[in-house]
């Protein structure tokens, strides 16, 4: 049965009209980018830096996830596997192998991408909800692997991971030093995703999202494009997980668990699927909610479920999508 509305329908009339901007950003996006950078620069002076770092790690994770769902139309329900595995690898590299933080983060990203090669290769054989179920099952397999494998420390996880010295020189033990590293990693990931979306490769991705048979008929090997997009997304998710591990000095099963996969879907949905800034805002909302509503305990699950239901029934464009629609700009 053909679906009448695609998952990431961009409202007609929103696209176009704007003057071509710089680096593929249009006018409104440039303003939003400036606001984002300013917020990044000022946030640690007003908010608890560790909280902002956590937020940025999840924002990068959500952006990586959005690269798949928002621009290729692939709903991965197992992104926690790549996020969590990136974290474990970075923790192992920093603690056991004594590598510097930048190498640990790169290692986390590479392993995330490597897992993505296998997961993507299997999952792109099916589409739609089957894709979602396959990614979810594969992630559950990674979870059970992490429960049993010796290097992950099972239920205890890897604890007391040192932040180390950046390039072997600058100590990151102070929160502010670590903050600037996280901010740079986040901005790098954010700009990389923006660059991917606006490359010719990104145009093909969007073509697949809109109409895959047509992209095939134009001569594109859509499976190859989907696989590369999946690997890129997983690699960036791995980078996000690795960074989070270094910030908190701990890698645990929570980060590979299915509920984390659900959370990143929630962040992206709340912010706006297929918008560049949406996942960042969504991550801020969800992480902030968990932080400030922590005393509610198990009710947080109920609230999260309620947000899912509300978003799907009434609020499908997400916060940024609705804002963009309201001001007739593309964010």
């Amino acid at each position: 049965m053909a679906s009448e509305t695609t998952l990431t329908a961009i409202p007609t009339g929103v696209v176009g009209k704007q003057a071509p901007g710089i680096w593929g950003f249009n006018g409104s996006q440039l303003i939003a980018l400036l606001v984002l950078v300013a917020a990044l620069a000022l946030a640690p002076f007003f908010l608890y830096p560790v909280f902002v770092m956590k937020l940025l790690c999840f924002a990068l994770f959500a952006c990586a996830f959005n690269l798949l769902i928002g621009y290729v139309g692939l709903m991965s329900f197992g992104h926690a596997a790549y996020f969590g595995m990136g974290g474990y690898i970075a923790g192992h590299a920093a603690k056991v192998m004594g590598l510097t933080p930048e190498i640990s983060i790169i290692a986390g990203g590479l392993v995330g991408a490597g897992l993505g090669v296998i997961g993507g290769w299997l999952a792109i054989r099916r589409q739609g909800i089957y894709f979602a179920m396959i990614t979810m099952a594969l992630a559950q397999m990674v979870y059970f692997f992490c429960v049993q494998a010796p290097f992950t420390g099972g239920e205890d996880g890897i604890q007391a991971i040192p932040r180390g010295k950046l390039f072997g020189v600058i100590s990151l033990e102070s929160d502010m030093a670590m903050y600037w590293v996280v901010a740079v990693v986040f901005l790098f990931g954010f700009m990389a995703i923006h660059r991917i979306i606006h490359s010719p490769f990104g145009q093909v991705m969007k073509a697949i999202r809109e109409n895959e048979p047509r992209a095939t008929s134009l001569g594109y090997r859509t499976d190859d494009y989907k696989l590369v997009a999946f690997i890129l997304s997983c690699g960036l998710a791995g980078v996000a997980g690795a960074t989070k591990t270094l910030v908190f000095g701990i890698a645990t099963l929570t980060d590979v668990h299915f509920s984390m996969s659900g959370e990143v879907v929630l962040m992206t949905l709340v912010g706006g699927l297929g918008t560049i800034f949406g996942p960042v805002v969504g991550a801020a909302v969800v992480v902030g909610m968990q932080n400030y509503l922590a005393e509610l305990g198990a009710w947080v699950t109920v609230i999260q479920g309620g947000i899912f239901v509300a978003c799907v029934l009434a609020f499908r464009r997400g916060i940024i999508g609705e804002l963009g629609n309201w001001f007739k700009v593309k964010l």
């Binding site: 679906s3 998952l7 699950t301 999260q304």
Partner: peptide, 23 residues
């Protein structure tokens, strides 16, 4: 709508039900 919205909605409903029982 796209089938995936049904998946997200039922996921949310499941979270709500499970959370209520756990509480």
């Amino acid at each position: 709508l796209d089938h995936l919205y049904g998946l997200l909605l039922t996921l949310g409903l499941g979270l709500i039900i499970e959370g209520i029982y756990r509480n």
